[in-house]
Design a protein around this nucleic acid. Structure first.
Length: 567
RNA sequence: GCGCCCUUAGCUCAGUGGAUAGAGCGUCCGGCUACGAACCGGGAGGUCGCAGGUUCGAAUCCUGCAGGGCGCACCA
């Protein structure tokens, strides 16, 4: 619809220019917007104000000339000039009613667009270190990345979800040493717990499992042998745990990418990805040697300082692996768009990573979304956590307590760059204070109406009922109540909201829309009785109800939240 | 010290350079003899942190300042 309105304005401007009613040096860009105020119509354009200066006429006079050529279209009920020179366009009831047909025909494809043009996009998110449980911030980024992937899919990208596993490096060694120390304790051996070891109780749990599986034999091997074996055992356990918890919130990754593969020789037995990526940068002249180390000249791309890739001792830095990882994303796998979601505590790495992507020859293909942190509250009081002792409320704890729907919805309700206060008590509350129930209630209420209309109170799925109840020749022209028209307008916004949310990488716009749509429905429900004596009106309103159900289910699906038919 | 994010109603937060800045919660008043009251209607409540600038028009863009969060390793 917005495209139609835009060309209507554009054509009117051209016609006025052709007729000599306006003369312009430069044709202004045509933009249309939805006015906040209903009395200002369905759409408005500021083109007259933008053109006024060049035309040498007052804005309202320019508006007169343009709007005179906009009437007569069957979708347009009125064109008015208002304020400093806005042209306000009011749609006809027929134009508004069409959204009901579209939604019911297109169903899960409603609001789909081709912004992505079939390009391949990768969303990499969570990527928690496989040495312990995830914190609630990881939960937020999981919800964010998954919903963003769903959104991108709806606007025409081919999307893959990826989890990068940092399974190499000193933290893995520390992890192994910690497990080994607890294991020895369990075997009643004298042992000093490593200074910087992980002190969480889960370490002991892992050690206990190994003990149960394999007995005490590892107590008498060399420390190196023991730790090397425990590292793999514990790593496998934690990885399985991560998958399990994420899956519990409905987040499934297409690829779990191991950092180790970047260090290992290539598939053809040739050099590793790290070696090849650095070679690539060397070719383009961004590598230099100094003080025995190999450096990347990231300052050429606006970074604060140059960065070490290979240390004087020969080891590669984490950053070197990260460059190789992104080299793989672009060069080997050929993604057109790569979105990495990082926690706010990594924002200091943004510039160097962007520099690396540019130096590899892929500027603009990498986007870094910074997710702010989560503060946990319970009944308004901060939940204190100690990293040192490992005492914390994990993502898993939270998920167990509030459930996947409330967790996802709350995680997604705030804009990404805003720190999130998560109140556990509120998320658990099954009341109107809790927005996720407000939206789900609207959906359940609709399903109840459809079951009642079909006289099938025990039906498990209302979709076939709705299809049978509302025939193709339903007369939507019967619908003109203010509450009905308001609901049509809200339904018609869906496609725009999806496009904006996807483009701005802002799933929180969907939660807002979901609440607005639910509110529009509840208002309609209050004043428009659906099932009544007039079969034609009943059929028409059942179509409205069904269209609303479809869009509510769809917006919740994009959020990854369930749409229950009863609650 | 440098960089990034934030500052909007009592609270938690929306707000693509547009018209009288919105929502939820809280508060006050009102609405169930028809489809789910987990709902709906109405009222009160704002110097959009402060000061300049750009613009026909600024919560939005630019500069400076103040306050809060996070980060500044040849760690990962």
């Amino acid at each position: 619809m917005q495209h139609l309105i835009k060309s209507l304005v554009s054509d009117a401007l051209d016609a006025a220019l052709d007729a000599g009613e306006l003369t312009l040096v430069e044709r202004p860009e045509i933009t249309i917007e939805r006015p906040r105020e209903l009395s200002h119509g369905d759409w408005a354009t500021n083109v007259a104000m933008r053109a006024a200066k060049g035309a040498g006429m007052p804005p309202r006079q320019v508006a007169e000339v343009i709007s005179a050529r906009m009437t007569g279209h069957p979708d347009v009920a009125a064109v008015e000039i208002a304020g400093p020179g806005f042209i306000n366009i009011r749609l006809s009831a027929a134009a508004l009613q069409r959204v009901i047909v579209s939604a019911r025909e297109q169903r899960a494809d409603f609001g789909r667009s081709d912004l992505g043009g079939g390009k391949r996009a990768q969303v990499e998110f969570v990527s928690a270190n496989p040495v312990g449980p995830m914190h609630v911030g990881h939960g937020r980024w999981a919800a964010l990345g998954d919903s963003l992937a769903r959104l991108l899919g709806h606007v025409g990208y081919r999307v893959e979800r990826e989890f990068y596993v940092n399974d190499q490096g000193v933290q893995m060694d520390v992890f192994a040493e910690s497990v080994a120390a607890r294991y020895l304790e369990l075997c009643d051996r004298e042992v000093e717990f490593p200074e910087s070891g992980y002190r969480g109780a889960y370490i002991t749990d892992i050690a206990r499992e190994i003990l149960a599986d394999e007995g005490e034999s590892w107590a008498d091997t060399s420390a190196a042998e023991r730790e090397s074996h425990f590292k793999e055992k514990a790593y496998a356990q934690v990885l399985a745990h991560l998958k399990h918890v994420l899956s519990g919130m409905g987040v499934e990754f297409d690829v779990w990418f191991s950092e180790r593969t970047l260090h290992a020789p290539g598939a053809d037995g040739g050099p590793s990805a790290i070696v090849r990526a650095i070679a690539r940068l060397r070719e383009t002249g961004y590598i230099f040697e100094e003080e025995g180390a190999t450096w990347f000249r990231s300052t050429d791309f606006g970074d604060d300082k140059d960065r070490v890739l290979q240390k004087a001792d020969g080891d590669y830095t984490y950053f070197a692996a990260d460059i190789a990882y992104h080299w793989d994303k672009f060069e080997i796998r050929g993604f057109d768009l790569v979105i990495d979601i990082w926690g706010a505590d990594h924002h200091g790495y943004v510039k160097r990573m962007e520099a690396a992507a540019a130096a590899l020859g892929h500027p603009g293909k990498l986007e870094l979304v910074i997710g702010q942190l989560v503060n946990l509250f319970r009944n308004g009081e901060v939940v204190r956590m100690s990293k040192r002792t490992g005492e914390m409320v994990t993502f898993e704890d939270l998920l167990d307590e509030v459930g996947p729907d409330a967790a996802r919805y709350f995680f997604l309700r705030r804009s990404t760059d805003q720190a999130l206060d998560f109140d556990i008590a509120l998320a658990k509350e099954q009341s109107s204070d809790n927005p996720v129930y407000y939206v789900q209630y609207a959906h359940a209420r609709i399903c109840s109406i459809l079951r009642k209309a079909a006289v099938q109170p025990d039906a498990d799925d209302v979709a076939p009922l709705a299809a049978a109840l509302v025939l193709a020749d339903v007369d939507l022209a019967l619908l003109g109540h203010d509450a009905e028209l308001a609901l049509f307008r809200k339904l018609a916004e869906f496609g725009e909201v999806v496009e904006i949310a996807a483009t701005q990488r802002a799933p929180h716009k969907l939660t807002r829309y979901a609440e607005e749509l639910a509110a529009s429905f509840h208002q309609f429900y209050t004043v428009c009785h659906v099932i009544g004596d007039d079969p034609a009106l009943t059929a028409a309103r059942l179509a409205v109800v069904d269209a609303t159900r479809i869009v509510l289910e769809l917006v919740l699906a994009l959020l990854g939240v369930s749409a229950p038919q009863r609650m």
